[in-house]
Design a protein around this nucleic acid. Structure first.
Length: 201
DNA sequence: AAACGGATTGGCT
DNA sequence: GCCAATCCGTTTC
């Protein structure tokens, strides 16, 4: 099967949980100055908008930062975490519904040497895309990608025909959202069983 | 194997 | 001023 860029309708899906699961096995690609780097998405988290206490858009919060999430599905939402990491999210649903999926880990595919170089790791023994901050550095994603269309030729997601069976898709509570009160426990993190590139068990 | 602290800055209470 | 959708090198059990 020929690799196929995901189209607008994929991102307009109104069920962000379903999109988070369907993104597993898809390929996240960046093209920066004609350098292609990519990875297979193996870990995601759904953030379900205004009713989700873990979401930046909880309670319909609109700020300069969150405004990107209110856009029509199919753009990227990038924000700075802990003052030093740019995390990549896929905006979903229709205009004004601020749903998003955080990509937490990818399995390296194309441009592996380039990704290692961007990560500036000493030696080669380290995983370099098994976490949301790491994969952004590896793929060259920074704040300039905020609001960028996923139908563009700078960053996009494609379907290579990879399919995981249902029993290989596991769920858990989301990582690092201890502030989210009762929503801490929601099983909105999805990842591939036994995949060595996920951020943690 | 686990625990800890430093890096570094935007966005709130 | 404090905390955050993190990561890494170092220290301690």
């Amino acid at each position: 099967m020929k690799s196929q860029k995901l189209n607008q309708s994929f991102y307009l899906n109104k069920d962000v949980i379903n999109v988070a699961k369907k993104l597993l096995g898809k390929i996240l690609v960046t093209n920066i100055n004609n350098t292609i780097t990519s990875g297979i998405i193996v870990e995601t988290e759904a953030y379900a908008g205004i009713d989700d206490k873990a979401s930046h858009a909880y309670n319909n919060k609109r700020t300069q930062r969150t405004e990107t999430m209110y856009e029509k599905g199919g753009v990227s939402y990038i924000y700075l975490c802990y003052g030093m990491y740019y995390l990549f999210n896929v905006v979903t649903n229709i205009n004004n519904i601020p749903h998003a999926v955080l990509i937490r880990a990818v399995e390296p595919l194309d441009g592996i040497n380039k990704m290692k170089k961007r990560r500036k790791m000493k030696g080669s023994k380290y995983n370099f895309t098994n976490g949301p901050g790491k994969l952004s550095i590896a793929l060259g994603i920074d704040n300039s990608f905020n609001g960028e269309s996923l139908l563009s030729d700078k960053i996009w997601i494609e379907d290579n025909g990879i399919k995981f069976s249902k029993k290989d898709i596991l769920s858990s509570p989301r990582i690092g959202v201890d502030y989210a009160k009762e929503d801490i426990k929601l099983p909105y993190r999805f990842y591939i069983k036994d995949n060595k590139w996920i951020s943690k068990l």
